[in-house]
Every structure is written in structure tokens, then in C-alpha cells.
């Protein structure tokens, strides 16, 4: 493999990984509060369609991003209500959300006289920097070749990490996910903490969805995000609930998804490998990583919040 091809693959991996960073960190924040939201796919799709629609009608990327964030948060509020207030089964509620969000997004893309489907986006996130910065060898394309949201994703990882481990609210968040009864006794409002972070997680998932429709594949189609929402859930485990690791896990995954194209451009004999096999690669990778990481003794150090997916009743024994 020559250098420029490697570079191309890495840059592409960063692009493909970016929506996963948003969604994964969103889910990390959600799960850190003890709520498991399996509806990431639905929230991402809603973010994708809302972002595309807002940009399509207003021509503003900023409004697109805003709409995506609001849509993701709005959908997650359903899950917040059922799992925090009603204390329903979180797995059922999350799965329902995934299906509902996907259906709704597809529906919204098709309605009206002039439906969104098939239309290209009016505005697209373009690389932020041009000129000599990008032409620098190595660091140019790696650090300066990206669009705004890539930088935002790094910022999000940094902020999330700091918030989680160095602030008072982050401490409350971690405590609520580990041991809500103790957190409550210490004066933390468990419901409030959970609501805030489930909604934040939804907003980030929505943003991740919009990255597909406004940057990666900026034409509205019925299924613009593939299985990204499901992958994000796996990446949460892979990154052991830590924001910075989510960045690397997402890029690794992006690289694995990119490999099939890279191999095709390499020609014989690489291009003979059936593409169906190669497109399985990321998923196989995810499964292997999950098995290795969650088996045996290692699972204990993994850091899953101890109260994850367990409904909390204050007056329960």
C-alpha cells in the first residue's frame, strides 16, 4: 500500500468515524446516568432527517445542526419519560424508540408535494481550512483537512471527559449511574440528573445523524446511516464508557469500514476478495472486540455503570 493510499484511508476513517463519535459519546453520557438507551439508531435517523430538512428549507447549516440536536433530544425524551418516570423496561423502550425513529424519519423524507428523498442538500459541510495548512505533509490532511464538525467532535470528547471526571456535575452523574440510592441520600436529584443526560445523549445522537445527511452523504435517501446507531452502542462497551476512547474506537471502526474500498483500488489480487465479506469486517471486528473485552476477569475493570438499566424506586427495599 503506498503512502497516499494509507493517508486517504486514514482521512476517510476520520470522516466515517465522526458521526460515531457523537453518537457513542452521547450514549456514554446516557449510560453513565444508569439509563440504557438502545434507541440510538432512531435518534440518529431523526437527527439526520431534521438536519437535512432544516438546511434544505433555510439554506443554513447552523439551523440544520440545531434542528438535528433538538430532534434527537426530543425523541430521547420519550425514553427518558418511560424509563425514569414510568420505570418501564429500558430495553423494550429503547428498541421501540429505534424502530419508531427509523420509521418516522423515512416517512418524513417522503411526505409532501416535493419530498426530500432524492434531493441533494443545499449546503454541505466542507473542509474548514484551505491553502498551505492542508498541503503540509502528514499533519496537513490529518489535522487540517477536516470540516467543522470533526473539530467539534474532538471538542465534545474533551469536554465530556473533563465534565465526567473533573466537575461536580460529572461526579453526580457517575454516582447516579453506579448507585442511585447512595447518590439520592447524598442529596443528588436522581431523576433530574438522569433526564438531563438522557436528553444530552439524544442531542448528540441527533448531531451524529446530521453528519451523515449534511456531510458524508449529503443527498436524502431512505437509509442514510446504515447501522451506525447500533454500532455506537457496541462502541460504548469497546470504549469502556470513556469519551476519549470512544474517539479511537470510532476511528478504528471507520477504518475497518473503509478497508473494502481501499483494497478495491489496490487491484489484483486484493480486489478479488468478495466485497460482501469485507463489508462484514467492521461488524466482525466489533463482535471480537466485545467478546475479548467483556469475557472473564476483564469485565470487572470494564467500568459499566453498576446500576445500568435497573429502574430506581426511592422507597423500594
Amino acid at each position: 500500500m503506498n503512502d497516499s493510499l494509507l493517508m486517504l484511508t486514514v482521512v476517510a476513517a476520520i470522516g466515517l468515524g465522526t458521526p460515531l463519535i457523537f453518537a457513542t459519546i452521547g450514549e456514554i453520557i446516557t449510560e453513565r446516568s444508569g439509563i440504557l438507551n438502545l434507541g440510538v439508531q432512531g435518534m440518529m435517523l431523526m437527527g439526520a432527517v431534521a438536519g437535512f430538512w432544516a438546511t434544505f428549507t433555510t439554506g443554513s447549516l447552523l439551523l440544520g445542526v440545531l434542528a438535528a440536536v433538538v430532534a434527537g433530544a426530543a425523541l430521547s425524551s420519550i425514553h427518558a419519560f418511560t424509563s425514569i418516570t414510568l420505570r418501564a423496561n429500558q430495553i423494550v423502550s429503547g428498541l421501540a424508540l429505534a424502530i419508531f425513529g427509523a420509521g418516522l424519519a423515512s416517512f418524513l423524507g417522503k411526505i409532501g408535494n416535493d419530498p426530500l428523498v432524492g434531493n441533494p442538500s443545499r449546503e454541505v459541510f466542507e473542509p474548514l481550512f484551505t491553502g498551505w495548512l492542508v498541503d503540509l505533509p502528514l499533519v496537513g490532511p490529518l489535522l487540517f483537512g477536516h470540516d467543522l464538525l470533526v473539530y467539534v467532535s474532538w471538542l465534545v470528547a474533551g469536554i465530556a471527559s473533563y465534565y465526567l471526571f473533573h466537575t461536580r456535575m460529572g461526579l453526580s452523574l457517575r454516582a447516579v449511574g453506579e448507585d442511585p440510592a447512595s447518590a439520592e441520600a447524598a442529596g443528588v436529584n436522581v431523576s433530574k440528573v438522569r433526564y438531563v443526560h438522557v436528553l444530552t445523549g439524544g442531542a448528540l445522537a441527533g448531531l451524529g445523524g446530521a453528519y451523515f445527511s449534511l456531510a458524508l452523504v449529503p443527498t436524502w435517501q431512505d437509509d442514510p446511516i446504515g447501522a451506525a446507531g447500533w454500532i455506537a452502542i457496541a462502541l460504548v462497551i469497546l470504549s469502556s464508557w470513556r469519551p476519549w476512547r470512544a474517539v479511537f474506537a470510532a476511528y478504528l471502526f471507520g477504518a475497518a469500514s473503509r478497508v473494502q474500498f481501499t483494497l478495491q483500488t489496490l487491484g489484483e489480487p486484493w480486489s478479488d476478495i468478495p466485497s460482501t465479506l469485507l463489508s462484514m469486517l467492521p461488524f466482525v471486528l466489533a463482535i471480537i472486540a466485545m467478546i475479548v473485552l467483556t469475557s472473564g476477569k476483564r469485565a470487572r475493570y470494564l467500568g459499566a455503570p453498576a446500576a445500568l438499566a435497573i429502574p430506581y424506586f426511592r422507597e423500594e427495599r
Binding site: 473533573h166 466537575t167 453526580s172 453506579e178 448507585d179 447524598a186 442529596g187 443528588v188
Partner: peptide, 29 residues
Amino acid sequence: MVYQHFRLVANLTVAENLALGHPGLDVRL
């Protein structure tokens, strides 16, 4: 109250357990 079954977050430090939920602390721990 010190509950009959303690209410401490097991994987946090002693200091963190004291800080938890304390309204008077700075945002930065």
C-alpha cells in the same frame, strides 16, 4: 442520616463521596 445499609458509592473515593451532592462546592472538583 447514616443508613442501616450504608449509602456510599463503592467505586468513588472517600473525598468524592463527601463532595457528592454538596451544593456549596465549585463546579471544578
